[in-house]
Design a protein around this nucleic acid. Sequence first.
DNA 1: AAGTACTATATCTAGACAGCATGTC
DNA 2: CTAGATATAGTACTT
Length: 813
Amino acid sequence: MDVADIPGVPDWLPDHLRADGIESLYPPQAEAVEAGVTEGENLVASVPTASGKTLVATLAMLASVERGTRSAPDDESGEAASGRRGKALYIVPLRALASEKREEFEQFEQYGLEVGVSTGNYESEGGWLATKDIVVATSEKVDSLVRNDAPWLDELTCVVSDEVHLVDDPNRGPTLEVTLAKLRQLNPDLQTVALSATIGNAEALADWLDAALVDSDWRPIELKKGVHYGQALHLEDGSQSELPVRNSEKPTAAIVRDTLEDEGSTLVFVNSRRNAEAAAGRLASTVEPHLTPEEREQLAEVADEIRDVSDTETSDDLADAVEGGAAFHHAGCANDHRSLVEDAFRDRLIKVVSATPTLAAGVNTPSRRVVVRDWRRYDGTAGGMQPLSVLEVHQMMGRAGRPGRDPYGEALLLANSHDELDELFERYVWAEPEDIESKLAAEPALRTHILATVASGFANSREGLLEFLEQTLHASQNADRVQLERVMDDMIEYLEVNEFLEREDDGGLTATSLGHTVSRLYLDPMSAAEIIDGLRAWKRGTGRAGTTTDASTAEGPDPDEEPPGFTAASDLADDADDEEAERPDPTAMGLYHLVARTPDMYELYLRSGDEEEYQMLAFEREEEFLGSMPSEFDPAFEDWLSALKTARLLEDWASEVDEDEITDRYDVGPGDVRGKVETAQWLLGAAESLAGELGLGLAPAVREARVRAEHGVREELTDLAGVRGVGRKRARRLYQAGIEDRAALRDADKSVVLGALRGRERTAETVLENAGHRDPSMDDVEPDAAARPDETGSPDAVTEPDDEEDQSSLGDF
DNA sequence: AAGTACTATATCTAGACAGCATGTC
DNA sequence: CTAGATATAGTACTT
């Protein structure tokens, strides 16, 4: 289909596409247009990666914005509804994809279309999004916007759900499913476009969304799947070619070498971080001899940038590999590491990347060849190594072949035996991807979404909930509602016991004010219950031996604590500090542990030997924990200890321990530290709101713990570190020079400031400016030698060469 | 005595969304 | 209940 023949799109579009070299649509795209995607029809497109899915979505969104609101004949609100422009929402599963899509859609700004992004850490401020034509957001953010009743949501005319096969994900799938159902209920005219990888049962998605289906295997670049075994490559078309493996060489290295001789790059998927790092190190020595002098030079620059990101072992190892033209990529890497690697790989500077699945689902990083080296992965819940799903392997393989640059892509599995060769062909090369299946009927999902659904007014009774749930994928896939209803009733009960929901006599359901807060804060109700329990227990002064209540199961408050009919808001006012024998404020450690043991915080793994260490720590600091410690023999004890490990990591960070020491002590990567801190910040913010609402007078203590985590500083630096341009390191230097807070900085002697900042004039100027100093200029100011930081007194501590990278802030993304 | 080449044994295991209000060098 | 790559300790042997 020629681009001029697409109905419903803006007039400028055909020329714009031609300018991009697009003369006609790919077959699946044409099919989508024929199905009416540019005329407001719902569509499910189940097609391979890189087959032009995004263009289908773009066409739908542009057409929808152009078409605007249909003036419905039975429009109750009267006039103005007609003639308004349409508004499109593009839902992505990852933040990184949100910014990638935004950049892609910004090409239409020249035609007067405005694009906005909304994710947890990057929000185009409040009402700002209302004026945008296209909004890109993560599914959780959209859910949150629905819960907080964002006014522009009912103006939507088109919603696109990218990677919609993720409704199959046990953790995050239900959110996407429920969010789509809510958007569609909110706006019955909403056009729904769902983009999926190729899956077994795409028609189930189409059924659910009342959508036409485009289900195709077509790719713009041929993908040859195959298996390497022995000295040969066996491809799916039956062909075999020689690919010799030298003695003492691993097959992966041989394949990389072979690709290199053809000037191609290779993406290697492995099953653990450690494997990724080890492979990158080894492959660097394979690649290194093939590099040109210019490449070596450029790679050295990238390596320097990588070292600047963070001063950790991971960072060094990565930089070393990059110098040899190889790299690893996994979630322990800082985000800056990841994007540096992705960019250099896309620029064909880095020749091999060994990656965990981060790269399979993330931003677009195509490669000439893909090697799926490990096809089994450890899964603790299944008790050992489990084969990857066909869907996942196909997603990885789909990264092979760069549009417009490679004649074809090749994706290879590795076999060690003839039997394995056959098995891999059977299991992956020739196999159809699995069916996807709603995971909504699981406790954690229903716990959260029942509360949110009631709190934001989508249902106000058990029957109403059932009616709402009818609109989900789960209902369309399961004729039998028995399991769903049973779990639903359990969860209503749970929410009622924890004072988030109230059941009326007539069977109606309402959210309490606490319930509303929990829903808006986007907390798992179980996390909220754990936090509330902990805060109340601290206030009561319980938690010591003897009063071993069942706090470990996060049940409701003790019935004898509050009079019946108690609501949280009612005791906002009382509760000043005038109680006798007032308990001191909880420590940061206590609060970090509280949030670390909620289900919203991902656990750190306890290594052998850790158990003993943290058990000792638990007893040493017993006084500090909120709520009672489970007994040593309680199965919950291990989780409690692992939360303690997380809590101590946070405490270290908030005590100005260096990042490299933290990564070393807990055996994690810089990306993990940043992730933990970020999650803790969010949960402590939520805990602060809850503490305020409970009126226990604990909010200031929570706030302080949060601010310390945010800046990574001790208590005395929280004010200084709040100044823009001042991170944990500079705040400490200024403090040591006698400048203790923002006010002191404002009136400080400039030579002292300059001295404390090790003579960096421009830095000192910016800092003073941000602090509101009358005259920040550093002209003619001599650094005060006495203010120069030299903690240890060792002479080389003063002449550290690492000028620029001493801030290691976590505010990045 | 220290290095090397090898083997037996122990260890460890992917990912990443969210509040709120703004900004690290 | 299931595995497998890698780190580490241990061993025999060389230089």
